[in-house]
Simulated scan of single mutants.
Amino acid sequence: MGGILKPMSQTLTLEQIRRAPKVLLHDHLDGGLRPETIIELADAIGYAGLPSSNATELGAWFTAAADSGSLERYLETFGHTVAVMQTRDALERVAAECAEDLAADGVVYAEVRYAPEQHLEAGLELEEVVEAVQAGFALGCARAAGRGESIRVGTLLTAMRHAARSSEIAELAVRYRDAGVVGFDIAGAEAGHPPTRHLDAFEYLRRENAHFTIHAGEAFGLPSIWEALQWCGADRLGHGVRIVDDIHHGGDGQPSLGRLASYVRDKRVPLEMCPSSNVQTGAAESIQSHPIGLLRQLRFRVTVNTDNRLQSGTTLSAEFAKLVEAFDYDWDDLEWFTVNAMKSAFVPFDERLALINGRIKPGFAQLKWATQ
């Protein structure tokens, strides 16, 4: 499952990669909090459930707890982060810090997702949750710009696949699509909760010409991907790792694509892959054996993402650095992943093109020249 063969080149460092203009499509707001922020927010509301009041220890706990090989166990860690994100001030702070942290990592465009229905315990209405998060992103982007780190953040509103509010959240996404919400998503444990349970929401979104992605092909296999595409009409696949199950190797060792894999590649369906998270949840055995290597070689529309920066103890730069080490990728590969992501974003075409031609390609060209 290697990448595209190329002459040996100097390995890129994490610091070099951090300077690259990157694009992130799959990042959960409640999976990216700073440990010190969790502690301060918990103290402010009297939440006593944290496993540690030391920021370093707490960060290590999240990573260890998520590193179980089980998606269900991985999802349990969100109980603590969601618990401290129940007020307008908390949501605004977390969103602002998210934008700042991504910008500091060299991300120039990000789509960050969260489930509004999970932030109502202190009495907020759904609209108040969305408005608080949008205000936070605006504040964080302004702060980052003040430091010379320009970033554009689009929001995805997520519905939980085990709940029954997907149509309501879809309507919310459409209502706020001119205020920074660029799309819709469903998330949560795949097994036993197929995306077809939410057909009403997806049909509504299509009637409204709205964009949506679906978590599929992470903990569950090809049927989840097939339903997300052929029944629900997803624009992108959240993870999509298990599409590799429809790629077979014959006696000559050459890969052969099944009908579904061929469809995904031919239709240029974007795959929102999150290498470290996929290893943690058991969707992949290791970074070195991650299907992203084969899928890159076969030129699927692959993108690289963080999923949950807190639980995985990662950044987008760190994800790229791991792939560089595993597959000997160079600047051309990282640019390819980045352009893929920008092409697949849920913002208008002219905005995508402006970022590709105005920031991404010039940024990578400068890095290639500087590291020759």
Rank of each mutant, 00 (worst) to 15 (best):
N209A: 12
T315E: 11
G221F: 08
Y176E: 01
A234F: 01
P195W: 05
L139M: 05
E40M: 00
A60L: 02
Q86P: 00
M273P: 15
A135K: 14
H239E: 12
L33N: 06
P195I: 14
G49N: 04
A132E: 04
V279S: 00
L205H: 01
P362Y: 08
A326D: 01
I39L: 10
Y204A: 05
Q134Y: 00
F349P: 15
A365D: 10
Y74A: 01
A48T: 12
I4E: 11
H162Q: 12
L50W: 11
M85N: 12
A365V: 04
M1C: 09
L205G: 03
F346Y: 08
I225W: 00
L126E: 06
L25R: 05
G136N: 06
G180R: 06
P35E: 05
F78N: 05
V107R: 00
T371N: 14
T196G: 02
R147K: 13
T63Y: 02
E40W: 01
P223S: 10
A191T: 10
C98T: 15
L29N: 11
R352A: 00
E285T: 13
Y47D: 01
L71D: 12
R161Y: 08
A99R: 09
A341L: 08
L222V: 15
H249G: 01
S344D: 10
G148S: 07
A234G: 09
Q118V: 08
S344E: 08
Q16V: 11
A173C: 11
G221M: 07
V324H: 06
S70E: 14
